[in-house]
Structures are given as structure tokens and as C-alpha cells.
Amino acid sequence: MRRATYREGVRTALRDALRRDPRVFLLGEDVGRYGGAYACSAGLLEEFGPERVRDAPLAENGFVGAAIGAAMGGLRPIVEIMTVNFALLALDQLVNNAATLRHMTAGQVSVPLVVRMATGAGRQLGAQHSHSLENWFAHVPGLRVLAPATVQDARDMVLAAFDDPDPVVIVENQVLYPTEGDLDEDAPPVSPWHAIVRRPGRDASIITHGGSLSKSLVAAELLAKEGIEVEVLDLRCLRPLDVDAIVATVTRTHRAVLVDESWKTGGLAAEVCATLVERAFYELDAPVARVCSVEVPVPYAKHLEDAALPSPARIVDAVKGVLHGRI
């Protein structure tokens, strides 16, 4: 166990995968010479050579398509897309091919593909590099979607995705890359398909994922100082959702605040909310609250960007709202 950054967690897993299996190769814009837009693959070109760490042209649909072909042909590609905004260019390949082929061929064709992409805002990168569109992928049957929120998950989820025979999309919140946490490089990967309670509490549940987890934990800490104990559930896997864990936490606390950096309308928080209404209606002791991004393209200006995103203060307010002065 050691302290490491989130990007180191990712890099450790990439290196493991490259070492473990000669069929593995990395593919993406700037993953080779530049070491990756977020330095996740720094040093890997030197270690594994240009055959296995391949820079791709700025043509997401093209190189994702090439990776799908390679996966169908027996290789194990791990693709990096610079941001989820750019991944929209590859939606055709991901949604129409990667997600469908096992089903359309009655299981004869597998697409063992891992696609990593940065998501989220907070670093003044402007609207075209700052959105949280993971729900677009979480909508699609045939894809699995993971959202690592900790350094350990950044490693474990890449390895678990690599072990999966079907296409897995990993969304990594870009503000997390330089953050530090505990990393056990030798541990067997924790199953990524389940939600995890990151902090237990009795008064309300915050259900969140990815970059919003740390904000939620800060909010929980602030609330604890006022005697309010919130449970924080990290969804981890956005498709399929861990419905049982979502129901279980609200069954314990009877109040839910959903924190999701994407927009409210048609977002993942809406899906979790609907799940609660379907499966935990009789456990609810207050309306469900959502803390999401303000419904504008994420602004560039610092103060506007800050104002648009979920923050610990907004989460605290939402929790107090569902408690209605009850603590």
C-alpha cells in the first residue's frame, strides 16, 4: 500500500495489463509520445514500444472503429479518448457496433474493448472539454460503464474492465487525476460492479459517483459538525446500476440527495430517482433532492464555472432541505 495519484493508479493498471497479456495495446490521441493528455500513459511508450502504445489521429470514430475490429480479431485494445465531449464522434462505433455485435451474432462475436475517457469540469477547459455525458453511454444496453472515484478504483476498474469479455467504458473525472489516495498495486481488483458505502450515516443518503464523491464527502464532514450524519454511496458502476445498494441505503436513512455533475434533465440522477420511486417508495420520508450542474454549457470563467457545478455547500443545503430542520 502506498500513496499515489489517481493518474498513477490508472497507469499502474495499464502497465499491468500490457505486461500480463501480449494481446493488449493502447490506442489514443497523444497516448504515446506525449504520455497521454492527462499523463496516464507517461513512460509506457518507452517501456512497451510503438507497436503496443500507439498514437492515433484526431479521428475518434475511426480509431475506435479500428479498436473494435482489433478486439473482434482477437486483440485486447485499451482506448483513451481525450474527453467525453470528443467521444461523441465515436458514438456510432460504440453504440452501433461495440454494443450490438454480441447480440446481433448470437454470441459468436465478442468485443473485449476498454475505452477510457476524461469527463467533468472544474479546470476552466471550456464547454467543449468539460461536460459530463456518462449518462449517454449508461443509456446503452451492451455497454458497461464504470466511474472510478478513488485512486484504488482508478486502477482496479481498468483491470476489471480488461478482464471483461464485453465493451466497457470508463469515465474518469479530470479533476481527480492529480489527487492522491491509497493504492495497493498487488491487491486483486475489487469487483467494480457494485456500489460502495464510502461513509455510513443515519440521517440521509447522498448517492453519487466519480468527481462528485469527494465533494459529497466534504459535505458529509461539514454536516457531521452540525450533528447530521449522512451516508455516502458511491455508485461506481453506472451501467448496470446497483439497484439493491441504492434501495438499501435509502431503506436505512429514508432520505436521498442525488449528486451528479451532469445536467438534471434526463440525467443519471433522474434514473436513480426513478429507481427509488419504483423500488423504495414506501421508505421515502421526504421528496428526493438532486444536486446537478446548472443547465448551461459549462462556462469558462472561473466564478461562473464554480457556480454551475455541484459544490459541498450546495450538497449541504440539499441535505438540510430533505431533513427540513429535523436534526
Binding site: H254, F281, Y282, E283, L284, D285, A286
Partner: peptide
């Protein structure tokens, strides 16, 4: 109509 939460009614 009495306004009570689902849990309160249960």
C-alpha cells in the same frame, strides 16, 4: 387530502 410521506403512511 392529507399530505404524508410514503414512509409516514407505511
Amino acid at each position: 387530502r392529507v399530505h404524508a410521506t410514503p414512509l409516514a403512511r407505511t
